[in-house]
Computed example of a mutant assay.
Amino acid sequence: MLIKAIIIDDERPARAELKKLLQAYPEIEILDEAQNSKEAIEKIHEHNPDLIFLDIQMPGQNGFELLSELVSAPKVIFTTAFDEYALKAFEVNALDYLLKPVDSKRLAEAIQKLSAQFQSQVQQKENKTVLTENEQFFVKDGDKCWFVKLSDVRLFESAGNYAKVYFDNYKPLILKSLNALEERLDEHHFFRVNRKHIVNLKWISKIEPYFNGGLLLELKNGEKIEVSRRQSAKFKEMMSL
């Protein structure tokens, strides 16, 4: 199992030292390097890595601000000279937090944890089937209950660990995160347009250019949803626009 990674650090010697340590792990393929957040975001979207080794203190945006820019973040191992960010690092679900200079034993522990998580994800994906648009699912909201066909759902909206399901004139909550839904939904019918929304492609009636290189979608019922600038490139490619 090959794990594709990018090293993000403003210090060239730190990047070189980490690359040297990672030579002991042939399962980790270093795709690229970046020295600041702007460059890192571009390279993450270009390569779509499984993992980033991320410094926190960098010129411009710091590591946490970088992560907030991403629609869907890869796994993160922080590498930093400062220990005061450890609690915040785990609040954003970082896989590990390594202090510089990186100790080879601590790196080994992080890679072991990483490998275990990837193996678990592979097994979970093998056990999960993609939901087709013709399948139904059960929704309960207070005293109301529905069997909802996926083709009738025009939109999913993030609400923390829940998601709002938009169908007919209803928008009840289900106990599924948007990330979990994205894994199960057929990408030929549903598209993650931004951090908060997944849209049913068959419900789109109009596509217009929007601010900062983004797009604005109008659904058949008149609702308008913005496609983020970064997702717009994917959307255009998929729709051959």
Rank of each mutant, 00 (worst) to 15 (best):
L31F: 02
A73C: 12
P172F: 01
E226M: 09
E133R: 13
C145R: 12
E65R: 11
M58G: 02
L98S: 05
I207K: 13
L173N: 04
A34Q: 09
N62A: 08
F90D: 02
L178R: 00
R184H: 08
K140L: 09
G160I: 09
K236H: 10
E27C: 05
P74R: 02
F211K: 05
Y85Q: 11
E17R: 13
F53M: 00
S115A: 08
N62C: 06
K100N: 06
E46R: 00
D96P: 03
A94G: 10
T132N: 13
K105T: 14
L67M: 15
L131M: 12
F211E: 11
E223L: 15
Q117W: 07
A110K: 08
I3H: 09
A24P: 04
Q57L: 12
V76D: 05
R230K: 00
P101K: 06
L22H: 04
P59L: 01
E187N: 00
G222A: 08
E84R: 01
Q61E: 13
Y25S: 04
F82S: 10
P101V: 10
Q123C: 03
L173T: 11
R15A: 10
L219P: 12
S72Q: 14
S37F: 03
F118D: 06
E208N: 09
S240L: 14
E223H: 02
F137C: 00
L66K: 01
F64P: 00
A81H: 07
L173R: 10
D96A: 04
E27G: 09
G63R: 07
V122N: 12
E84I: 10
N212T: 12
G213N: 05
L31A: 02
L150Q: 03
S151I: 15
E226C: 08
E91L: 01
M239I: 06
F118S: 02
F235D: 01
S151Q: 08
R106M: 12
M238G: 08
A233P: 01
S158I: 06
P13S: 02
S120W: 12
L181P: 09
L95G: 03
K113H: 10
K4M: 02
D32N: 07
A233W: 01
K100T: 02
I198M: 09
R192D: 03
K234H: 09
A73Y: 02
E84C: 10
E39R: 08
A16G: 04
E11D: 07
E39A: 01
K164F: 15
D32M: 03
Y170Q: 15
A24L: 11
A108D: 11
E91A: 09
V227S: 09
A94T: 08
L131C: 04
L185Y: 00
E157S: 11
F167M: 07
V102L: 04
D103H: 05
D83R: 00
P172N: 14
I225R: 09
K176I: 07
S72R: 12
S68N: 13
L18S: 07
D50P: 00
L241C: 01
